[in-house]
């Protein structure tokens, strides 16, 4: 790890004043579970590290009529233990449960989960987000069993965020602050598929801090997350699905179906969403929705197996949301 200067601001205003306009100027430190690893691997070598854990206004979970506000530095464990989250947003609790290390749940933050860099082994070994070398895609020509199955983009890594799919399905907004003001971005637009090697996978700019996440009131909508995993111990899922269902009695008025770990961003499955409108969730309907969700998947040489996993994840998330799991 390169040396750096360290700052421990007490307010958001102080913190944003410490950031720079380039990624190499300053890095925001919260849980540290990803940032320190990136720095040890020299994938990031910021001149300054700004610890935001001491900033009170970035913590805490609060519920209002409009919805739920989750501070960026709320840990995964705090989120999963929160009574309001447990009552209304089981999809977040289920997504958190997939982070199967108590240590990571105690350290890692919700903001950090959204901002963590991709786990793609080409990226982690210094070949960049697109994994291109000498004009050739290392991902397409090499090992790609954990990569994207929706492959219409130049980037073929998968978004590593555990909460991203659930937050997109719940229609959450992400708040970002810089020294010159704040802005709000739909969770769906916070994640970006980079089109060139210089681009980032999230909308955050180097001079910004993710400050909070706001989830609209559930208003009786049912939600769930289902992850398909290779093993119980700490690892990222192979495929996941988060769903949110607005109900009219026993039928679905409208549905959000968002896949995780299958594309560079959480992947909204529009075909599955329109198929579900007006239907009652049965095993057959859930299976059909799963099939529709992956109909346009184009897997790589080594990951066709993920298509079936994603399909099953959608089916099981729908059944869980409908209380039929």
């Amino acid at each position: 790890m390169q040396g750096f200067e360290y700052a421990n601001p007490a307010t958001l205003k102080e913190a944003t004043a410490l950031l720079g306009n380039g990624w190499g100027d300053a890095a925001v430190l919260a849980g540290g579970t990803d940032l320190l690893t990136l720095m040890k691997e020299y994938l990031m070598s910021p001149k300054r590290v700004v610890n935001i854990k001491g900033i009170k206004e970035l913590g805490g979970i609060s519920k209002s009529g409009a919805g739920l506000r989750i501070g960026a530095t709320v840990t995964v464990d705090e989120l999963m233990s929160n009574a309001a989250v447990r009552a209304e947003y089981p999809s977040l609790v289920q997504a958190g449960r997939g982070i199967t290390s108590p240590q990571i749940r105690n350290m890692g933050t919700v903001g950090g989960d959204l901002c963590q860099r991709p786990r793609c082994w080409y990226f982690r070994n210094g070949f960049g987000l697109l994994g291109v070398k000498d004009g050739k895609s290392l991902v397409r020509e090499g090992e790609n069993k954990y990569h994207a199955i929706f492959t219409g983009q130049p980037a073929l890594f998968v978004s590593a965020s555990s909460f991203g799919p659930a937050l997109v399905a719940l229609g959450a907004k992400v708040k970002l602050a810089s020294a010159s003001g704040t802005r709000e971005v739909d969770a769906a637009k916070f994640f970006v598929a980079p089109q060139n090697e210089g681009a980032r996978e999230i909308a955050l700019l180097p001079n910004e801090i993710l400050t909070e996440i706001v989830i609209p009131a559930a208003r009786g909508a049912k939600n769930a997350t289902y992850e398909v995993r290779h093993k119980d111990a700490l690892d990222w899922p192979l495929a996941a699905a988060s769903v949110s269902l607005s109900m009219k009695g026993a039928t679905v008025a409208s549905a959000r179906v968002v896949l995780g770990h299958v594309a560079p961003t959480p992947h909204a499955a529009a075909a599955a969403e329109s198929l579900l409108a007006g239907k009652t969730i049965t095993e057959a309907v859930a299976d059909e929705a799963g099939k529709a969700a992956v109909a346009d998947a184009k897997p790589l040489s080594g990951n066709a197996y993920k298509v079936q996993l994603a399909r099953v994840a959608v089916k099981r998330a729908l059944l869980a949301a409908a209380g039929k799991a």
């Binding site: 200067e5 700052a7 102080e14 004043a17 410490l18 720079g20 100027d25 300053a26 001149k47 020294a179």
Partner: peptide
């Protein structure tokens, strides 16, 4: 120390 816009209140 950096060439970042260090504003007056920066700690």
């Amino acid at each position: 120390v950096l060439s970042v816009p260090a504003e007056a209140q920066a700690p």
